[in-house]
Simulated assay, not measured.
Amino acid sequence: MDRLEAMAMLVTVTEAGSLSAAARALQVPLATLSRKITDLEARLGARLLIRTTRKLTLTDAGVTYLASARRILEQVEEAERTAAGEFTVPKGELVITAPLMLGRLHVLPVVAEFLAAFPEIHVRLVLADRNVNLVDDHVDMAVRIGRLPDSAMVATAVGSMRLVSCASPALLAALGEPLEPADLLRFPCVTVDVLQTSSTWRFRHPESGAAVDVHLQPRLAVTTTEAAVDAAGLSVGVARLMHYQVVDALQRGKLKTILQAYEPEPSPVSLVHASRGQMPLKMRRFLDFAAPRLRDAIAGVASFG
């Protein structure tokens, strides 16, 4: 039997949570996958999985073997990259992830320049407003907004981003400009979360630094930041978004920032990758290429509004 293939299948089964889901992900018949796992257990003389109709559970032997299998597969992958020249020549596929709107506005132009400069590198750009797991999803590098709790990740700072509250000039003319967060209780608001019927916006007191929470009832809840910007521009209500998401509307005079003195601490923006020993040249080249350009782009956002 192909032990590496069986190891990879076991890893996929545990990540997918079931044999049927793993079979779909691997595009192999369920019977084939089940037989491979059974053959692996027979070779080892140990049961790795406890299978029930509801879920799969690793045995103690399975937990230990899975950890070893992951390390072996990572070492094989690194050896293959070395043999293919990824550590001596910048080439191959580079998988990058970024928040949807930030990626479209600021990361994509950098990627386009990078591709022109490095013709032997191909990029898959995953834009999503969720934190993709870099290791499990085989992502090389991520652009992240916010503090990074995972110490296994290596972060290169490229700037910081404000969380701003904004409203249309027409709405402010009609209701007056709020002087403190509690004044928002007399304003309609727009939120980007249809799953909640209420929203809490946290501000920071400019003198004490204490948190100031305001509990609001959204007049309109939408599913995208672009829709929230458009709705705020149409005077539906006050919106609270990352600065880069509204800077175009601010520049065109469709929106105006409010309560700037009460804004929370800006969130760091970082280029992040997993710590895995020697970095392939394609990643090193992208990091060196993208970091200064993203710093300039983020600084440009910060300079307005």
Results as ranks from 00 to 15, higher is better:
residue 30 L to D: 14
residue 250 L to H: 03
residue 24 R to C: 03
residue 160 S to L: 05
residue 230 D to Q: 13
residue 166 C to R: 00
residue 78 E to T: 15
residue 180 E to C: 13
residue 110 V to L: 10
residue 252 R to V: 07
residue 254 K to D: 14
residue 167 A to W: 01
residue 244 Y to G: 06
residue 215 H to V: 13
residue 90 P to M: 08
residue 298 I to W: 08
residue 9 M to I: 08
residue 220 L to S: 01
residue 8 A to W: 04
residue 245 Q to P: 00
residue 124 R to C: 02
residue 123 V to S: 03
residue 298 I to G: 04
residue 85 G to A: 01
residue 226 E to M: 08
residue 293 R to E: 01
residue 110 V to H: 09
residue 243 H to C: 04
residue 200 T to R: 10
residue 146 G to A: 04
residue 44 L to S: 03
residue 23 A to W: 00
residue 92 G to K: 02
residue 55 K to D: 06
residue 232 A to S: 09
residue 4 L to R: 14
residue 137 D to I: 03
residue 27 Q to A: 15
residue 56 L to R: 04
residue 303 S to H: 12
residue 5 E to N: 12
residue 63 V to N: 10
residue 199 S to H: 14
residue 114 F to S: 07
residue 145 I to A: 00
residue 235 S to V: 06
residue 16 A to P: 03
residue 174 A to W: 04
residue 86 E to K: 03
residue 135 V to C: 02
residue 29 P to D: 12
residue 242 M to W: 14
residue 80 E to I: 09
residue 19 L to R: 11
residue 25 A to P: 04
residue 147 R to L: 12
residue 268 P to M: 01
residue 36 K to R: 15
residue 30 L to H: 15
residue 246 V to F: 02
residue 144 R to V: 15
residue 196 Q to Y: 08
residue 216 L to I: 12
residue 181 P to R: 04
residue 197 T to Q: 12
residue 46 A to F: 11
residue 68 S to I: 10
residue 302 A to N: 09
residue 176 G to P: 01
residue 72 I to L: 14
residue 56 L to C: 08
residue 25 A to W: 03
residue 88 T to I: 08
residue 126 V to E: 15
residue 21 A to D: 02
residue 189 C to K: 05
residue 172 L to G: 05
residue 70 R to M: 10
residue 144 R to N: 14
residue 221 A to W: 05
residue 44 L to K: 02
residue 295 R to T: 14
residue 277 G to C: 04
residue 80 E to S: 11
residue 106 H to V: 10
residue 205 H to I: 08
residue 28 V to F: 01
residue 96 I to V: 08
residue 160 S to A: 11
residue 215 H to P: 07
residue 121 I to Q: 01
residue 304 F to Y: 12
residue 11 V to G: 06
residue 226 E to H: 05
residue 75 Q to T: 10
residue 211 A to S: 11
residue 106 H to S: 12
residue 258 I to R: 07
residue 254 K to P: 01
residue 218 P to R: 03
residue 152 A to D: 14
residue 304 F to Q: 13
residue 106 H to W: 12
residue 53 T to P: 04
residue 157 A to M: 11
residue 33 L to K: 00
residue 250 L to G: 01
residue 59 T to D: 12
residue 228 A to L: 06
residue 6 A to H: 07
residue 113 E to D: 13
residue 101 M to D: 13
residue 110 V to A: 12
residue 53 T to A: 15
residue 302 A to H: 01
residue 139 V to T: 06
residue 212 V to Q: 07
residue 236 V to Y: 02
residue 252 R to Y: 09
residue 13 V to D: 07
residue 297 A to K: 02
residue 121 I to T: 02
residue 207 E to A: 14
residue 279 M to T: 13
residue 74 E to H: 10
residue 131 N to R: 13
residue 41 E to Y: 02
residue 14 T to Q: 15
residue 147 R to H: 11
residue 104 R to P: 00
residue 176 G to M: 07
residue 196 Q to W: 05
residue 234 L to G: 04
residue 239 A to D: 09
residue 180 E to T: 09
residue 106 H to T: 09
residue 47 R to W: 09
residue 49 L to W: 03
residue 44 L to F: 05
residue 223 T to A: 15
residue 295 R to K: 11
residue 151 S to H: 15
residue 261 A to P: 03
residue 275 S to A: 15
residue 193 D to A: 10
residue 246 V to H: 00
residue 75 Q to L: 12
residue 303 S to T: 09
residue 60 D to F: 11
residue 275 S to E: 14
residue 293 R to L: 08
residue 45 G to S: 07
residue 35 R to S: 13
residue 56 L to M: 11
residue 1 M to I: 10
residue 213 D to I: 02
residue 46 A to Y: 05
residue 28 V to C: 00
